[in-house]
Amino acid sequence: MEAIITASELADGLTGPNPPVLLDVRWQLTPPGTPPFDGRAAYAAGHLPGAVYVHLDGELASPPGVNGRHPLPDLAVFGAAMRRAGVSAGRPVVVYDGGQGWAAARAWWLLRWTGHPDVRVLDGGLPSWTGALSADVPEPAEGEFEPAPGAGQLLDADGAAALARSGVLFDARAGERYRGDVEPIDRVGGHIPGAVSAPTTENVGPDGRFLPAAELRDRFKVLGASAGAEVGVYCGSGVSGAHEVLALAVAGIEAALYVGSWSEWSADPSRPVAVGPDPQ
């Protein structure tokens, strides 16, 4: 099943016999001490016709705590949000955000992890859409989706540490945070020992769209991952890491996500922290 969809493919699908449910997940990480990004206001100003807004912090994550800044959502809350948006297992879903792709990838990963068989991310997000936008708030029929978490796609802290030793664990954050040069958010800078630096920003072009699958495969192969390898990803709080899992899927490589990521790992002083450049 394809993981991403182009704007032209989406436009064609919206007029087909089984049009997708559209989820607008606009969200941005803002610097500490600044007001949070207002995704609802952005949605109200204009969205894809028929799209339903989904709140990342309230519906795709639980409140911050010992499990990180964006822990897994309560499945009852997540399932209710998806059904409210009209999501059912027998109908495709397309998720988009403001163009960065991180928030859309988080929704994609959650739906995939909880058993939805056909969910894709709009490549390039809302900026790639050339059609008309709408300010109307749709009221779709209640969906029937019931989250059923699967195995093999989720890592905890111990699993991430083990994978860094036995397989490939990618750190999707910026290189300076991986090295520990700076740490603007979490308790301490650095990375999980054995993790490989693979900034997710390098998986896309200047327009925010993913590089071709062959280029992504080559990139991940150089970094030590290929189809059949045991691969995991983490980031700061499990959002940009989902975008890297999506990039790996485009490349044909399955990967698990450590949702707690660095925000959970670094909060525990007993866990080891490595600093400096990637040893590869």
Rank of each mutant, 00 (worst) to 15 (best):
residue 52 V to L: 05
residue 52 V to C: 15
residue 52 V to M: 13
residue 54 V to H: 03
residue 54 V to R: 12
residue 54 V to S: 01
residue 55 H to L: 00
residue 56 L to M: 11
residue 57 D to V: 07
residue 57 D to R: 08
residue 58 G to I: 00
residue 59 E to G: 01
residue 59 E to D: 00
residue 60 L to P: 00
residue 60 L to V: 02
residue 62 S to I: 12
residue 62 S to T: 13
residue 62 S to P: 07
residue 62 S to M: 08
residue 64 P to D: 13
residue 64 P to F: 14
residue 64 P to M: 13
residue 64 P to V: 10
residue 64 P to A: 12
residue 66 V to K: 15
residue 67 N to R: 15
residue 67 N to G: 09
residue 68 G to Q: 13
residue 70 H to M: 02
residue 70 H to E: 06
residue 71 P to I: 07
residue 72 L to T: 03
residue 73 P to T: 10
residue 73 P to L: 04
residue 73 P to C: 11
residue 74 D to Q: 14
residue 74 D to H: 14
residue 74 D to N: 15
residue 74 D to G: 14
residue 75 L to E: 13
residue 75 L to I: 10
residue 75 L to Y: 11
residue 77 V to S: 03
residue 77 V to T: 15
residue 78 F to P: 08
residue 78 F to V: 09
residue 78 F to R: 05
residue 78 F to Q: 08
residue 79 G to R: 11
residue 80 A to E: 14
residue 81 A to C: 10
residue 81 A to M: 11
residue 82 M to P: 07
residue 82 M to N: 07
residue 82 M to F: 08
residue 84 R to L: 02
residue 84 R to P: 00
residue 84 R to M: 04
residue 84 R to S: 12
residue 85 A to E: 08
residue 85 A to G: 09
residue 86 G to R: 13
residue 86 G to P: 10
residue 86 G to M: 10
residue 86 G to Q: 12
residue 87 V to L: 08
residue 88 S to A: 14
residue 88 S to D: 05
residue 88 S to R: 14
residue 89 A to I: 02
residue 89 A to Y: 00
residue 89 A to K: 13
residue 90 G to M: 01
residue 90 G to H: 14
residue 90 G to E: 15
residue 90 G to F: 00
residue 90 G to D: 15
residue 91 R to T: 15
residue 91 R to N: 06
residue 92 P to I: 09
residue 92 P to Y: 01
residue 93 V to C: 09
residue 94 V to C: 06
residue 94 V to H: 08
residue 94 V to R: 04
residue 95 V to C: 05
residue 96 Y to W: 01
residue 96 Y to G: 01
residue 96 Y to V: 08
residue 97 D to A: 04
residue 97 D to I: 04
residue 98 G to Y: 01
residue 99 G to Q: 04
residue 99 G to I: 07
residue 99 G to C: 03
residue 99 G to K: 06
residue 99 G to A: 05
residue 100 Q to C: 00
residue 100 Q to I: 00
residue 100 Q to A: 14
residue 100 Q to P: 00
residue 100 Q to L: 10
residue 100 Q to V: 00
residue 100 Q to Y: 06
residue 100 Q to R: 08
residue 101 G to Y: 07
residue 101 G to H: 04
residue 101 G to N: 08
residue 102 W to S: 15
residue 102 W to E: 13
residue 103 A to I: 04
residue 103 A to L: 07
residue 103 A to E: 02
residue 105 A to N: 02
residue 106 R to Y: 03
residue 106 R to W: 09
residue 106 R to K: 11
residue 107 A to R: 10
residue 108 W to P: 10
residue 109 W to A: 11
residue 109 W to K: 08
residue 110 L to I: 12
residue 110 L to P: 08
residue 111 L to C: 14
residue 111 L to I: 10
residue 111 L to E: 10
residue 112 R to S: 13
residue 112 R to N: 11
residue 112 R to I: 01
residue 112 R to K: 09
residue 113 W to E: 13
residue 114 T to P: 02
residue 114 T to Y: 03
residue 114 T to G: 03
residue 114 T to D: 02
residue 114 T to V: 06
residue 114 T to F: 01
residue 115 G to Q: 05
residue 115 G to A: 05
residue 115 G to Y: 06
residue 115 G to V: 07
residue 117 P to E: 03
residue 117 P to R: 01
residue 117 P to D: 07
residue 117 P to F: 04
residue 118 D to Q: 13
residue 120 R to Q: 15
residue 120 R to E: 09
residue 120 R to V: 10
residue 121 V to N: 02
residue 121 V to T: 07
